[in-house]
Computed example of a mutant assay.
Amino acid sequence: MITLALPLSLSVLVVASTIAAACPTVAENRVDIYPTAKELPANLLRLYIYFPRAMTAEEGSRHVALLDDKGARVNGAFLATNQELWSPDRDRLTLLLDPGRVKSGLAAHEVLGRALVPGQSYTLVISGAAIDARGCPLGADVVHNFSVVGPDYDTPNPVAWSIGSPRVNSSEPVKVDLGSTHDHLSMAYRLRVVDDKSEIVPGAIELGPEEKSWHFVPREPWAEVTYNLVVDERLEDLAGNRPGVLFDRPVSAEPTEWQSHLSFLPTKDDG
């Protein structure tokens, strides 16, 4: 067998062609952005970008830009850190709006104000040049538009939520209407269902449109017992408010009382 050494330039072309052929198409490069609501509060604390695959270790923030309604970049909107907020599998990037600008009373807020202005529209752009861990680019810019309303100074209030009871012996979801958009990751980790013995009920979580509702599908059918929805004190809305505690509050402020358990009883079929 004879082995021929390719010229360096030709070798590079062959490798590049192989990589290009293996890369997904633009249509397969779906990127999801949370919150999904099209109206967000001026004191929004986080944006999340879900990439279709694990991304490269290069600086992800340089592929992301926040533009105002005139197409100009909003400088200093996101908190600059030495380490970006990637999920362990590197397919989710959390963009933290600079808390110093979000929270009133701090120097950055007083000098620069919030990055998001009520009544204005914004566009989050993820460059198609962003590279995944295999060296494949997204291939096309991803554009996410939203408008900004006034700041949110209401804490999550479980007492005001409504719960739709599922039927006994069914695996119907229990649906909880939260009344407003909450942080989707917080909803996934900070709400749980326990049975009449205070044991966690295993199952799957689904989120409703604009993350305004939380649905839980049990692994086993509902029994004819009283269940409780348990609300962790660290549950957050889009502005970082927690039950009984505002993110934008004086340091000396005491949290207000709130109800951490909501009960529901699965209903029987008629007849």
Rank of each mutant, 00 (worst) to 15 (best):
R53L: 01
M55F: 08
V74P: 04
A72R: 15
L40E: 13
L40W: 06
K38S: 14
H63R: 01
A37V: 05
K70H: 08
A65C: 08
S61R: 15
Y48R: 14
D69T: 09
A65D: 12
Y34E: 04
I33C: 03
N75T: 13
D69A: 13
D32E: 15
D32H: 09
P41W: 08
Y48S: 10
D68R: 04
I49N: 00
V64F: 03
T36Y: 03
L40S: 05
T36M: 06
L67T: 11
Y50E: 11
V74C: 13
R46C: 03
E59C: 00
K38A: 12
S61G: 14
F78Y: 15
N43K: 04
Y48H: 07
A37F: 07
K38D: 13
R46A: 03
M55P: 01
D69Q: 13
R30F: 09
Y48K: 10
Y50G: 00
A42P: 05
Y48I: 02
L40Q: 13
P41H: 03
D69R: 03
P52S: 11
M55H: 05
G76Y: 07
T56Q: 14
G60I: 12
P41S: 05
Y48E: 04
A65I: 15
L47R: 04
G60T: 11
L47V: 10
Y34V: 00
T56R: 12
R46Q: 12
G71L: 06
A37T: 10
A54W: 05
E58W: 11
Y50N: 06
G76L: 05
A42E: 14
R62A: 09
I49E: 01
A37R: 05
L67Q: 10
K38V: 08
K70N: 04
Y34P: 00
V64W: 07
F51R: 02
L66A: 10
G76V: 09
R53K: 12
T36V: 14
V64D: 04
A54F: 09
M55Q: 11
P41K: 02
N43C: 01
Y34I: 00
N43V: 07
H63A: 04
P41I: 05
R46P: 00
A54Y: 03
A77H: 00
I33G: 05
F51H: 06
D32V: 05
R53T: 13
F51S: 08
H63L: 01
E39C: 06
L44V: 11
A65P: 01
I49R: 01
A37E: 07
D69F: 03
P35Y: 06
R73H: 14
V64M: 01
M55N: 04
R62L: 13
E39W: 11
H63P: 00
L67Y: 10
L66S: 07
